[in-house]
Amino acid sequence: MTRRTFLRAACAAAVPASLGLPALAQPAAWPARPVRVIVPFGAGSGNDIVARLMGDHLGRALGQPIVVDNRVGANGSIGADAVARSAPDGYTLFVTTNTTQAANPALMKKLNYDPIKDFAPIGRIANTPAMLVVNPSLPVRNLQELITLAKSRPGKLTYASGSAGTLVPAAMLTHMAGIDMLHVPYKTIPPALNDVVAGQVDMMFTDMATGMPQVKGGKVRAIGVSSLQPVASLPDVPPIAATIKGFELLAWYAMYAPAGTPTPIIERLSRELQAAVNHPGLRERLASLGLQPVSSTPQELADFSRSELARWGQLIRSAGIEPE
């Protein structure tokens, strides 16, 4: 081998080694850019309020902005499908409710996502009872008076809904009380509640976070909650179970990512989410909205999601709701 040939060979061997150095370097730390949180219901809904509260905390903890993206429609399934189709890179998260993850398979004939297989659980956030509110012009002050009025006007009173968490308790009420009322569906809760305030619809079950300001402002009258105990922030509003034995329904909020999101990212998000839910200031804020803070590990949320899928399916079938 000549000296020139030897140098060429040595250079050729050195080039791949130098080119290979970046491949051995550690990948860029996550997150390196803003993180998107998809919310499947509209601005001002309880889901939206909870997502923004959690996003504020996570943004500070992660050192990157959290951008809330409301994808409304099809009972939350448009937002859920968008998450399921997103890259599992930690830059798309999902703050959602029992509607998309537990109720929709029983409410809809066709879904473009699987609530178990298409999502990586991160953690629970809160439970929420539903609150039954009526327009103040409706001549009822409690649930028994509403039942009596509905029986005297079969098919005449109207109720709105904007999610499974607001539709299912209403269907349970009509079924368990033996009354007939007209259902008026909406894409999300705030416009439904606005029409109850305006008197276009007589009543609805609303989530606590959306309904609380309207109740305290005197825009609607609260006559019952779907928990077995009164809500601390509205102690004078009785449980529906006080009138209809066995009536109980709790909706919930939780955070997920697309299936396949790397485990280290899920673990980091889980730690930060649990820290947020257990932060005294945030717990107080959630409680003021009528919510019950609940934290969990990813595995605990996975187990909970499966059990809730079965539970909500049974509730929907028992209430006589047909899939659409």
Results as ranks from 00 to 15, higher is better:
218 G>S: 15
216 K>P: 13
98 N>M: 08
119 F>I: 00
107 L>K: 13
74 A>E: 15
182 L>G: 15
155 G>C: 07
285 R>G: 05
304 F>N: 03
16 P>L: 09
320 G>T: 11
243 T>Y: 06
150 A>F: 03
219 K>C: 15
261 T>I: 03
7 L>F: 05
29 A>H: 14
30 W>G: 10
198 A>K: 08
11 C>Y: 07
239 P>A: 05
305 S>R: 04
229 Q>W: 08
174 T>W: 05
57 H>E: 06
93 L>Y: 08
7 L>Q: 01
247 F>Y: 02
127 N>E: 09
56 D>V: 12
242 A>K: 15
69 D>I: 09
114 D>M: 03
117 K>E: 12
288 S>V: 14
257 A>S: 13
230 P>V: 01
58 L>A: 02
65 P>D: 10
267 E>S: 15
24 L>E: 07
145 E>N: 14
247 F>L: 00
104 N>F: 01
61 A>K: 04
215 V>P: 08
250 L>P: 02
224 G>M: 06
40 P>I: 13
67 V>F: 15
28 A>C: 09
218 G>Y: 13
23 A>P: 11
217 G>L: 08
201 V>E: 00
31 P>G: 09
187 K>Q: 15
316 I>F: 06
142 N>T: 11
85 R>K: 14
141 R>M: 10
223 I>G: 08
44 G>R: 00
36 R>Q: 14
52 R>V: 04
130 A>E: 05
165 G>M: 01
119 F>M: 01
218 G>W: 12
193 L>Y: 01
125 I>M: 03
214 Q>R: 13
218 G>E: 09
214 Q>M: 15
298 P>G: 00
74 A>Y: 13
200 Q>W: 06
302 A>Y: 03
261 T>C: 04
47 N>Y: 05
225 V>F: 01
258 P>A: 15
103 A>G: 10
204 M>A: 06
301 L>W: 01
268 R>C: 14
108 M>G: 05
196 V>R: 00
20 G>N: 08
270 S>Q: 13
122 I>D: 02
84 A>F: 06
91 Y>M: 10
297 T>Q: 02
273 L>H: 10
5 T>L: 12
295 S>C: 02
51 A>V: 04
247 F>P: 00
16 P>S: 12
222 A>K: 04
293 P>S: 02
322 E>K: 11
191 P>W: 08
15 V>L: 07
149 L>Q: 11
259 A>E: 04
233 S>Q: 12
283 R>D: 07
228 L>M: 09
317 R>T: 14
164 A>W: 03
226 S>R: 00
179 I>L: 04
182 L>H: 15
